[in-house]
Amino acid sequence: MSIEVKQLKKAVANLVVAGEMTIYTALEQKTVFSKCLDHNKELQIDLSAVSEIDSAGLQLLLLLKREANQRHIKLSLINHSQAVVEVFELLNLGNHFGDPIVLSANWKST
């Protein structure tokens, strides 16, 4: 399973996504996300271990954000990995998600 779900307390979950967020994993990941959306009031998505993200993965994040807004679920994306930051920058989506993005000092050089 590429997503590890930790139920921090009742209705608050922490999800750690590991590996790819691509068309190949989208279906599986979406099922997990949907289930978490149904059962929680607050979601933290840890993106630190996302090695690769493509349009399908991005779509999932966009969907997550929209659903969370509509259902008044507090959603925060944390620890964006380099791959995620690159895509957010490309599409200028940082503001849309509204989560602080922490950059490591040498992230561009690696």
Binding site: K30, S34, S55, L58, Q59, L60, E67
Partner: peptide, 11 residues
């Protein structure tokens, strides 16, 4: 959410 197909492109 329920009807969204993660393998379709909506972008």
């Amino acid at each position: 959410d329920a009807e969204m197909n993660p393998e379709s492109c909506y972008l």
